[in-house]
Design a protein around this nucleic acid. Structure first.
Length: 720
DNA sequence: AGCACGCCGACT
DNA sequence: GTCGGCGTGCTC
């Protein structure tokens, strides 16, 4: 006999909680983690709600799992995320529920120390152990044996004799507590005012969202550290979200310099026991500060007081598989639900965040100057129409002259070209055959080091042929256009005695080696760095005084409505790499269109004007942030199936007033994880219930068949 | 996500 | 005959 029914949400792609009978004698509360039968197996789930009832026709809850229960706020947040992203509720739960995979108890750590009289029979091995333990300190059993050069058996023997005694050691803390007053940084007047404004928001109800806008080198990090310190002082937790790549040793060291210890970090690389303990520590409130990638937003914080979203404009915050979400936007909502202050930090805020600040939804705190009176780099456009550059060369005389000057003074130069590989296009001289990807119809990019042609869209790789695959001519292939590898070749010819390095995401040797090389660059072991957008993010190069942008026009011509914004942000960050040390830096920006608004804003340093103009252009086009752009992502193993399905969906739906179906995107299909994928664009006015409409649409669409899947991606926008 | 069920091709 | 491949659908 039972008196209650539990609606249990299971972390699978299910949209409804399933009802189970609660056995008498099993005390359950909403939010508890339970084990329930599902089909033939048992799975873990969370009690989403409890209600009275006999539940005679339901299966019964098998039992409670010893895991931190999910707070009402956490459940509200997950419900909201599922609603907003149009994902099944169970999928949202899956992001927030991390259960121990092994049931095995944590290995007990046993310490030993000297306790009593020497053993009756002394041996050389025993003698060494006793001598070591003579200092009275507690050691791990295994360590003591190792240090003494004996086997564990010898130590065990001494324990049996009573010479040594065992001591239960407390589990190592997952993370040490940061000390908010460990070392106050010296802040400038501006910085102190900004820091006080941010820290003050923690005491407001409801806690507001603040845009912290500061040029590169203005000390944003130090400023938001003060808000973190305030959270810790109040006994609350702070979460610092960052793009995965930015979770560097450099950042952790800066944190440690301010707080005495490194913060707990959470990202996809944190696994196993460590992950479990962190999860538990965060749920208990023991872990005070977490620095993490976007997934850290879904942890069950006990007392969240502050969320910092560092580099809030970063596209890495957008998750594009499974549940589609933008961590920055979800952070704003989580903050509101937990009454935690939110700080969005960036040197180049996204348009939507700017608009929210301009409309008063977010506060706006500015750090207009570099810290320590350092100058912003002088930026100059190099008009490529007026420069004499030989065929097959890409560095203008102006840039070369500037490089000579800087290198001559022992300084570093960064050359930026956002194009991996050797050449973006390969042609046959004899028959004009263009090497294209068999899946995506994108050009294949030559990678000369790897001797292969690579599709940057889907990852397709083929060996660079000796003879043309179309006409058979030998040695007839020509490489058109530059990639970073090709620039490296040119640089080696121009500056043979200088040490150059190419940095791009296909850097050989993985993250570890990349990290080492970045440190080597900072230490001055290279003179010329040639890099893709990888170099724009998060690394300080104190000896870098000159930045050359080789082709500022890349990205301006794409059909993406955010192209201008993205290019502006990228170029502003890259040029900002110049002159972070003592000496002011300068940047030369090679372009074919020096009058383009993006280039003009960059050179004049008038970001405000650019954003105003860009906002106006978007308003006229009816694009976000003034409406919403959603896309249905249709994917299937076969290209035709995906395409046909998207077309069918576009026809079936009859949009309500305020909604425009822009139709299947003309953009080339992308092949991701063996599935063809493309978008069906929907535009709406702000007032329209986009979620309701899209759900209804999906329900009316032809039954999704034949391994076709549909996901929905709501673009970041103003939704508060 | 599993896991069963079912419907087709090649084997002890 | 039946073993097993995968495609489809259900799980309170």
């Amino acid at each position: 006999m039972t008196s209650h029914i539990a609606d249990v949400l299971i972390p699978l792609a299910l949209d409804t909680a399933y009802s189970y009978a609660v056995p008498d004698g099993l005390p359950l509360r909403e939010g508890d983690v339970v084990q329930v039968p599902l089909g033939t197996r048992e799975v873990a789930g969370v009690v989403w709600s409890l209600r009275p009832g006999s539940g005679a026709n339901f299966k019964s809850v098998a039992g409670r799992i010893e895991a931190p229960p999910l707070s009402p706020q956490m459940r509200r947040f997950l419900d909201w995320v599922a609603w907003y992203t149009l994902a099944p509720k169970g999928s949202a739960l899956a992001m927030g529920l991390k259960l121990a995979d092994g049931e095995r108890p944590e290995a007990v750590r046993v310490g030993v120390r000297l306790a009593g009289a020497p053993p009756r029979r002394m041996t050389p091995a025993r003698q060494r152990v006793v001598a070591l333990a003579g200092d009275g300190l507690v050691r791990l059993k295994r360590e003591l044996a190792q240090e003494a050069g004996v086997s564990i058996g010898v130590v065990d023997g001494l324990i049996d004799e009573g010479t040594l005694e065992t001591v239960a050691l407390l589990a190592e803390p997952v993370a040490e507590s940061p000390d908010p007053d460990f070392s106050r940084n010296h802040l400038s007047e501006d910085q102190r005012a900004a820091a006080e404004a941010l820290a003050g928001t923690l005491s407001e109800t409801p806690a507001p969202v603040t845009l912290l806008e500061g040029v590169t080198g203005s000390g944003k990090t130090e400023v938001y550290f003060e808000a973190v310190a305030e959270a810790v002082r109040q006994g609350r937790q702070a979460l610092i979200l960052m793009p995965e790549i930015a979770l560097t040793a450099q950042f952790l060291d800066r944190f440690a310099a301010r707080f005495g210890v490194k913060p707990a970090t959470w990202h996809s690389g944190v696994t196993g026991r460590k992950r479990e303990r962190l999860y538990a520590g965060i749920a208990s409130g023991e872990v005070k500060v977490v620095a993490g990638a976007r997934s850290a937003l879904f942890l069950p914080y006990a007392r969240l007081g502050l969320i910092v979203v560092d580099e809030e404009h970063e596209t890495a915050y957008k998750q594009e598989d499974g549940v589609h979400y933008h961590a920055r936007d979800m952070a704003v909502v989580r903050g509101r639900i937990e009454n935690a202050a939110v700080v969005l930090a960036s040197a180049t805020p996204s348009i939507e965040t700017r608009v929210n600040a301009a409309r008063g939804r977010y506060r706006h705190v500015r750090l207009p100057e570099r810290f320590g009176g350092r100058q912003l780099p002088r930026i100059r456009a190099v008009d490529l129409r007026r420069e004499q550059i030989p065929r097959g060369r890409w560095l203008s005389p102006s840039l070369i002259a500037a490089m000579e000057e800087s290198l001559g003074q022992g300084e570093q130069v960064l050359l930026f070209l956002n194009r991996r590989g050797y050449a973006p296009l390969t042609l046959c001289r004899a028959c004009a055959h263009r090497y294209e990807c068999p899946n995506c119809s994108a050009w294949l990019v030559e990678h000369r080091f790897r001797r292969s042609l690579v599709c940057h869209h889907c990852g397709h790789v083929e060996r660079t042929p000796q003879a043309c695959i179309a006409c058979g001519s030998v040695d007839s292939l020509v490489s058109c256009g530059p990639g970073v590898e090709r620039i490296a070749e040119e640089v080696a010819e121009l500056f043979p005695e200088k040490r150059g390095i190419v940095l791009s995401s296909d850097f050989p040797g993985g993250t570890e080696r990349l990290r080492r090389e970045l440190a080597a660059i900072a230490a001055g072991e290279f003179d010329i760095v040639i890099g893709t957008q990888l170099v724009a993010k998060g690394h300080n190069f104190p000896l870098m005084t000159l930045v050359g942008v080789l082709d500022a026009d890349i990205g301006l011509t794409s059909g993406d409505p955010r192209a201008a914004e993205r290019t502006f942000q990228l170029l502003q960050q890259v040029t900002g790499r110049a002159g972070r040390g003592e000496k002011p830096g300068r940047a030369l920006v090679q372009t074919w269109q020096p009058d383009h608004p993006v280039i003009a804003a960059l050179v004049s340093g008038d970001a405000e004007r650019f954003y105003r103009e860009e906002t106006r252009v978007r308003e006229m086009a009816g694009l976000p942030p003034f409406g919403r752009l959603a896309s249905l992502i249709v994917s299937a193993a076969e290209r035709e199936a995906a395409e046909a399905h998207a077309r069918a969906m576009a026809k079936v739906a009859e949009p309500p007033p305020g909604v425009t179906v822009l139709g299947p995107a003309e953009a080339p299909l992308a092949l991701i994880r063996g599935r063809y994928r493309f978008r069906l664009l929907v535009k709406t006015e702000r007032e329209v219930d986009l979620q309701g409409y899209l759900r209804a649409w999906m329900a009316r669409c032809p039954k999704v068949r034949g391994n076709t899947r549909v996901a929905i991606d709501v673009d970041p926008q103003s939704f508060l």
